[in-house]
Protein backbone atom coordinates (compact mmCIF):
# COMPACT_ATOMS: atom_id res chain seq x y z
CA UNK A 1 0.00 0.00 0.00
CA UNK A 2 2.63 2.41 1.15
CA UNK A 3 4.85 1.50 -1.69
CA UNK A 4 2.08 2.07 -4.09
CA UNK A 5 1.46 5.50 -2.64
CA UNK A 6 5.10 6.22 -2.98
CA UNK A 7 5.22 5.28 -6.62
CA UNK A 8 2.14 7.36 -7.15
CA UNK A 9 3.74 10.35 -5.51
CA UNK A 10 6.88 9.68 -7.47
CA UNK A 11 5.08 9.56 -10.73
CA UNK A 12 3.18 12.68 -9.78
CA UNK A 13 6.40 14.51 -9.16
CA UNK A 14 7.78 13.16 -12.35
CA UNK A 15 4.68 14.26 -14.11
CA UNK A 16 4.80 17.78 -12.72
CA UNK A 17 8.23 18.14 -14.16
CA UNK A 18 7.05 16.86 -17.50
CA UNK A 19 4.01 19.05 -17.37
CA UNK A 20 6.19 22.09 -16.74
CA UNK A 21 8.29 21.15 -19.69
CA UNK A 22 5.21 20.49 -21.78
CA UNK A 23 3.72 23.81 -20.78
CA UNK A 24 6.92 25.62 -21.59
CA UNK A 25 7.15 23.70 -24.82
CA UNK A 26 3.61 24.59 -25.79
CA UNK A 27 4.19 28.21 -24.93
CA UNK A 28 7.33 28.12 -27.05
CA UNK A 29 5.55 26.37 -29.88
CA UNK A 30 2.67 28.83 -29.68
CA UNK A 31 5.18 31.62 -29.93
CA UNK A 32 6.76 29.91 -32.89
CA UNK A 33 3.43 29.45 -34.62
CA UNK A 34 2.65 33.11 -34.14
CA UNK A 35 6.04 34.24 -35.29
CA UNK A 36 5.88 32.17 -38.43
CA UNK A 37 2.17 32.56 -39.03
CA UNK A 38 2.78 33.95 -42.48
CA UNK A 39 5.26 31.35 -43.64
CA UNK A 40 4.09 27.80 -44.02
CA UNK A 41 6.39 26.47 -41.35
CA UNK A 42 7.07 22.75 -41.57
CA UNK A 43 5.14 21.03 -38.83
CA UNK A 44 7.43 19.86 -36.09
CA UNK A 45 6.67 16.27 -35.30
CA UNK A 46 7.49 16.21 -31.63
CA UNK A 47 8.04 12.98 -29.73
CA UNK A 48 5.49 12.22 -27.03
CA UNK A 49 7.27 10.71 -24.06
CA UNK A 50 6.39 7.25 -22.76
CA UNK A 51 4.17 6.91 -19.72
CA UNK A 52 0.63 6.80 -18.51
CA UNK A 53 0.31 10.29 -17.06
CA UNK A 54 -2.96 11.87 -18.13
CA UNK A 55 -1.50 14.68 -20.16
CA UNK A 56 1.05 12.42 -21.82
CA UNK A 57 -1.57 9.84 -22.61
CA UNK A 58 -4.01 12.38 -23.97
CA UNK A 59 -1.23 13.92 -26.02
CA UNK A 60 -0.38 10.54 -27.51
CA UNK A 61 -4.01 9.73 -28.19
CA UNK A 62 -4.48 13.10 -29.80
CA UNK A 63 -1.66 12.37 -32.23
CA UNK A 64 -3.19 9.00 -33.01
CA UNK A 65 -6.61 10.55 -33.55
CA UNK A 66 -5.17 13.09 -35.95
CA UNK A 67 -4.01 10.28 -38.20
CA UNK A 68 -7.61 9.16 -38.68
CA UNK A 69 -9.95 10.79 -41.23
CA UNK A 70 -11.50 13.85 -39.62
CA UNK A 71 -15.03 12.50 -39.71
CA UNK A 72 -14.12 9.45 -37.67
CA UNK A 73 -12.97 11.52 -34.73
CA UNK A 74 -15.26 12.72 -31.99
CA UNK A 75 -13.70 15.42 -29.85
CA UNK A 76 -15.12 15.47 -26.37
CA UNK A 77 -14.16 17.17 -23.13
CA UNK A 78 -14.53 15.53 -19.76
CA UNK A 79 -14.43 17.61 -16.59
CA UNK A 80 -14.05 15.85 -13.25
CA UNK A 81 -15.88 18.05 -10.75
CA UNK A 82 -14.39 16.10 -7.84
CA UNK A 83 -10.93 17.17 -8.89
CA UNK A 84 -11.63 20.78 -9.80
CA UNK A 85 -10.19 23.02 -7.12
CA UNK A 86 -11.60 26.25 -8.49
CA UNK A 87 -8.26 27.83 -9.35
CA UNK A 88 -9.61 29.42 -12.56
CA UNK A 89 -6.35 28.58 -14.36
CA UNK A 90 -8.39 27.29 -17.30
CA UNK A 91 -10.34 30.54 -17.51
CA UNK A 92 -7.13 32.54 -17.48
CA UNK A 93 -5.20 30.34 -19.89
CA UNK A 94 -8.14 30.48 -22.29
CA UNK A 95 -8.18 34.27 -22.07
CA UNK A 96 -4.42 34.31 -22.70
CA UNK A 97 -4.58 31.80 -25.53
CA UNK A 98 -7.40 33.55 -27.35
CA UNK A 99 -6.50 37.11 -26.25
CA UNK A 100 -10.02 37.66 -25.01
CA UNK A 101 -11.14 41.25 -24.40
CA UNK A 102 -13.40 42.44 -21.55
CA UNK A 103 -16.78 40.76 -21.50
CA UNK A 104 -15.64 37.85 -23.60
CA UNK A 105 -15.00 34.70 -21.66
CA UNK A 106 -15.12 31.20 -23.09
CA UNK A 107 -14.73 29.19 -19.95
CA UNK A 108 -15.80 30.73 -16.67
CA UNK A 109 -15.83 28.56 -13.55
CA UNK A 110 -19.06 28.60 -11.58
CA UNK A 111 -18.53 28.51 -7.83
CA UNK A 112 -21.16 27.23 -5.50
CA UNK A 113 -21.26 26.71 -1.77
CA UNK A 114 -22.80 23.42 -0.72
CA UNK A 115 -24.21 22.57 2.71
CA UNK A 116 -24.09 24.51 5.94
CA UNK A 117 -21.51 24.71 8.68
CA UNK A 118 -19.83 22.45 9.72
CA UNK A 119 -20.71 20.29 6.67
CA UNK A 120 -19.82 22.83 4.06
CA UNK A 121 -17.83 22.61 0.88
CA UNK A 122 -17.36 24.33 -2.43
CA UNK A 123 -18.37 22.99 -5.80
CA UNK A 124 -16.73 24.28 -8.95
CA UNK A 125 -18.12 23.89 -12.41
CA UNK A 126 -16.03 25.01 -15.38
CA UNK A 127 -18.32 25.88 -18.30
CA UNK A 128 -16.78 25.77 -21.78
CA UNK A 129 -18.95 25.64 -24.92
CA UNK A 130 -20.75 22.30 -24.86
CA UNK A 131 -20.26 21.82 -28.64
CA UNK A 132 -23.75 20.33 -28.63
CA UNK A 133 -24.58 17.70 -31.22
CA UNK A 134 -28.01 19.32 -31.39
CA UNK A 135 -27.14 22.96 -30.80
CA UNK A 136 -29.98 25.45 -30.20
CA UNK A 137 -27.73 28.36 -31.15
CA UNK A 138 -27.07 27.49 -34.80
CA UNK A 139 -30.57 27.31 -36.33
CA UNK A 140 -31.47 30.78 -35.04
CA UNK A 141 -28.62 32.49 -36.89
CA UNK A 142 -30.20 34.45 -39.75
CA UNK A 143 -27.06 34.39 -41.90
CA UNK A 144 -25.58 30.89 -41.61
CA UNK A 145 -22.66 32.34 -39.68
CA UNK A 146 -22.67 29.56 -37.10
CA UNK A 147 -23.03 25.86 -37.67
CA UNK A 148 -22.26 22.41 -36.34
CA UNK A 149 -19.25 21.45 -38.43
CA UNK A 150 -19.60 18.07 -40.06
CA UNK A 151 -15.89 17.53 -40.13
CA UNK A 152 -14.60 18.37 -36.67
CA UNK A 153 -17.93 18.32 -34.83
CA UNK A 154 -17.30 21.76 -33.32
CA UNK A 155 -19.95 24.47 -33.35
CA UNK A 156 -18.25 27.04 -35.54
CA UNK A 157 -18.70 30.78 -35.98
CA UNK A 158 -17.61 32.63 -39.09
CA UNK A 159 -16.75 36.03 -37.65
CA UNK A 160 -16.69 37.56 -41.10
CA UNK A 161 -20.26 36.51 -41.79
CA UNK A 162 -21.73 37.25 -38.35
CA UNK A 163 -23.83 40.42 -38.33
CA UNK A 164 -23.79 40.69 -34.55
CA UNK A 165 -27.52 40.30 -33.92
CA UNK A 166 -26.83 38.27 -30.73
CA UNK A 167 -29.71 35.88 -31.33
CA UNK A 168 -27.36 32.93 -30.71
CA UNK A 169 -26.24 34.41 -27.38
CA UNK A 170 -29.90 34.53 -26.42
CA UNK A 171 -30.59 31.00 -27.61
CA UNK A 172 -27.72 29.21 -25.85
CA UNK A 173 -29.06 27.46 -22.74
CA UNK A 174 -25.57 27.39 -21.23
CA UNK A 175 -24.68 31.04 -21.66
CA UNK A 176 -21.63 29.88 -23.58
CA UNK A 177 -21.59 32.71 -26.09
CA UNK A 178 -20.35 36.17 -25.39
CA UNK A 179 -20.23 39.39 -27.35
CA UNK A 180 -17.11 41.33 -28.32
CA UNK A 181 -17.96 44.96 -27.57
CA UNK A 182 -14.66 46.20 -28.92
CA UNK A 183 -13.23 47.14 -25.56
CA UNK A 184 -9.71 46.64 -24.28
CA UNK A 185 -8.47 46.12 -20.75
CA UNK A 186 -6.10 49.00 -21.27
CA UNK A 187 -8.81 51.43 -22.38
CA UNK A 188 -8.42 54.80 -20.70
CA UNK A 189 -4.75 54.15 -20.11
CA UNK A 190 -2.08 55.94 -22.13
CA UNK A 191 -1.19 52.92 -24.26
CA UNK A 192 -2.86 49.76 -25.49
CA UNK A 193 -0.85 46.89 -24.14
CA UNK A 194 0.98 44.71 -26.60
CA UNK A 195 -0.82 41.56 -25.61
CA UNK A 196 -4.11 43.16 -26.54
CA UNK A 197 -2.85 44.03 -29.99
CA UNK A 198 -1.56 40.52 -30.63
CA UNK A 199 -3.68 38.55 -33.08
CA UNK A 200 -5.81 35.66 -31.93
CA UNK A 201 -6.28 32.40 -33.78
CA UNK A 202 -9.89 31.45 -33.17
CA UNK A 203 -11.04 28.79 -35.67
CA UNK A 204 -7.52 28.54 -37.04
CA UNK A 205 -7.63 31.98 -38.64
CA UNK A 206 -5.67 35.04 -37.76
CA UNK A 207 -7.78 37.81 -36.22
CA UNK A 208 -6.58 41.31 -35.48
CA UNK A 209 -8.87 43.31 -33.26
CA UNK A 210 -8.60 46.68 -34.91
CA UNK A 211 -10.88 49.48 -36.18
CA UNK A 212 -14.06 47.64 -35.26
CA UNK A 213 -13.24 44.72 -37.59
CA UNK A 214 -14.24 41.19 -36.69
CA UNK A 215 -14.15 39.67 -34.14
CA UNK A 216 -15.26 43.02 -32.68
CA UNK A 217 -19.04 43.21 -32.93
CA UNK A 218 -19.39 39.44 -33.16
CA UNK A 219 -20.61 36.64 -30.99
CA UNK A 220 -17.61 34.65 -29.76
CA UNK A 221 -17.26 31.37 -27.98
CA UNK A 222 -15.08 28.44 -27.03
CA UNK A 223 -13.95 26.25 -29.92
CA UNK A 224 -12.12 23.52 -28.02
CA UNK A 225 -8.94 25.33 -29.15
CA UNK A 226 -9.40 23.69 -32.51
CA UNK A 227 -6.47 25.72 -33.87
CA UNK A 228 -4.22 23.98 -31.35
CA UNK A 229 -5.84 20.58 -31.69
CA UNK A 230 -5.24 20.60 -35.44
CA UNK A 231 -1.54 21.04 -34.72
CA UNK A 232 -1.50 18.19 -32.25
CA UNK A 233 -1.73 20.30 -29.11
CA UNK A 234 -4.29 19.86 -26.36
CA UNK A 235 -6.68 22.75 -25.59
CA UNK A 236 -5.18 25.43 -23.38
CA UNK A 237 -7.63 24.72 -20.54
CA UNK A 238 -6.67 21.06 -20.52
CA UNK A 239 -2.92 21.58 -20.35
CA UNK A 240 -3.18 24.18 -17.63
CA UNK A 241 -5.56 22.34 -15.32
CA UNK A 242 -3.53 21.85 -12.15
CA UNK A 243 -5.93 19.31 -10.67
CA UNK A 244 -6.13 17.02 -13.71
CA UNK A 245 -9.80 17.79 -13.81
CA UNK A 246 -10.08 18.50 -17.54
CA UNK A 247 -9.65 15.83 -20.17
CA UNK A 248 -9.82 16.11 -23.91
CA UNK A 249 -9.72 13.52 -26.65
CA UNK A 250 -11.34 11.38 -29.27
CA UNK A 251 -14.28 9.47 -27.79
CA UNK A 252 -14.52 7.35 -30.92
CA UNK A 253 -11.34 5.61 -29.89
CA UNK A 254 -12.65 3.08 -27.35
CA UNK A 255 -9.23 2.81 -25.76
CA UNK A 256 -8.85 6.53 -25.19
CA UNK A 257 -8.86 8.07 -21.75
CA UNK A 258 -11.98 10.15 -22.44
CA UNK A 259 -13.88 7.09 -23.71
CA UNK A 260 -12.89 5.30 -20.53
CA UNK A 261 -14.10 8.16 -18.36
CA UNK A 262 -17.48 8.72 -19.98
CA UNK A 263 -18.33 5.03 -19.90
CA UNK A 264 -19.05 5.18 -16.18
CA UNK A 265 -22.28 5.80 -14.27
CA UNK A 266 -21.00 8.94 -12.57
CA UNK A 267 -21.04 10.85 -15.84
CA UNK A 268 -23.54 13.61 -16.54
CA UNK A 269 -24.16 16.44 -18.93
CA UNK A 270 -25.70 19.83 -18.25
CA UNK A 271 -29.40 20.31 -18.96
CA UNK A 272 -29.75 16.87 -20.50
CA UNK A 273 -33.51 17.34 -20.65
CA UNK A 274 -33.14 19.91 -23.42
CA UNK A 275 -31.88 17.27 -25.84
CA UNK A 276 -28.87 19.31 -26.86
CA UNK A 277 -26.46 16.35 -26.55
CA UNK A 278 -23.46 18.20 -25.22
CA UNK A 279 -19.94 17.02 -25.95
CA UNK A 280 -18.75 18.20 -22.57
CA UNK A 281 -19.20 15.56 -19.91
CA UNK A 282 -18.98 16.06 -16.17
CA UNK A 283 -17.85 13.44 -13.69
CA UNK A 284 -19.52 13.75 -10.32
Amino acid sequence: MNEQENTKAESRREFLGKAMLAALGTAFLAGQVEAKASEAAPKEDFEVPEGDEHLIRMQRELKEALKKPAKERRWVMVIDLRKCVGCHACTISCIAENKLPPGVVYRPVIEEEVGSYPNVSMRFLPRPCMQCDNPPCTPVCPVHATWKDEEDGIVHIDYNKCIGCRYCITACPYGARSFDFGENYSDQTPKTSEYEEAPSFDWGKKWERKNGDSPIGNARKCHFCIHRVKEGMLPACTTTCIGHATYFGDANNPKSLVAELIGKPNVMVLKEELGTHPRVYYLV
Partner: peptide
Protein backbone atom coordinates in the same frame (compact mmCIF):
# COMPACT_ATOMS: atom_id res chain seq x y z
CA UNK B 1 -29.19 30.45 -17.57
CA UNK B 2 -27.01 28.39 -15.22
CA UNK B 3 -27.12 28.86 -11.49
CA UNK B 4 -24.06 30.74 -10.36
CA UNK B 5 -23.05 31.95 -13.80
CA UNK B 6 -23.65 35.51 -12.65
CA UNK B 7 -20.88 35.31 -10.08
CA UNK B 8 -18.56 33.10 -12.11
CA UNK B 9 -16.78 36.00 -13.73
CA UNK B 10 -16.43 39.64 -12.86
CA UNK B 11 -16.58 42.11 -15.69
CA UNK B 12 -18.72 45.08 -16.51
CA UNK B 13 -19.80 43.26 -19.68
CA UNK B 14 -20.76 40.20 -17.66
Amino acid sequence: VLKGLDTAYYDKRW
